[in-house]
Design a protein around this nucleic acid. Structure first.
Length: 123
DNA sequence: GTTGTGACATCGC
DNA sequence: CGCGATGCCACAA
């Protein structure tokens, strides 16, 4: 499918993405695909197509996120920063500051630090 | 009006 | 297990 499409409601999608990212606790991380999956495919979008596009939509949302959104806790499926250097160093520094260590390859173990999803921060 | 370029995930070598 | 190719649209200069 087309990777650079836009969601039916780009604004609403961004708001949902930000809302979820804000719920990621310190010391944990989520992937773009994870956030997209939590939001769920919009009506008329097939699941497999959404899997490919949704992640980029989340990325676009992070590109224009407000300052209160912990964008650094969102990584790609490889457990690495998807930003171009030297911006990725900033992301790694912020995460390391939260107690999330990266290995020598600039990668972390998603199995350990992966966010379990919303619910634990819910009253 | 044209051109360049994107906060990704997945499959095949 | 790492790297390259695939997808082919929207939007700012």
């Amino acid at each position: 499918m087309s990777p650079f499409t836009s969601p039916p409601d780009p604004q609403g999608f961004k708001l949902q993405a930000w809302s979820l990212v804000k719920q990621i606790p310190p010391g944990q991380v989520a992937t773009y695909g994870q956030i997209a999956a939590l939001i769920g495919p919009p009506p008329g979008i097939e699941a497999d197509a959404y899997r490919a596009m949704g992640a980029r939509w989340v990325g676009a949302a992070m590109a224009g996120c407000p300052p209160d959104v912990p964008w650094q806790r969102v990584l790609n499926a490889q457990g690495k920063s998807s930003l171009k250097p030297p911006a990725d160093e900033q992301q790694r520094a912020l995460l390391h500051q939260e107690g999330v260590p990266f290995d020598d390859r600039g990668r972390l173990d998603l199995k350990i630090y992966a966010w379990k999803g919303p619910g634990q921060t819910r009253p």
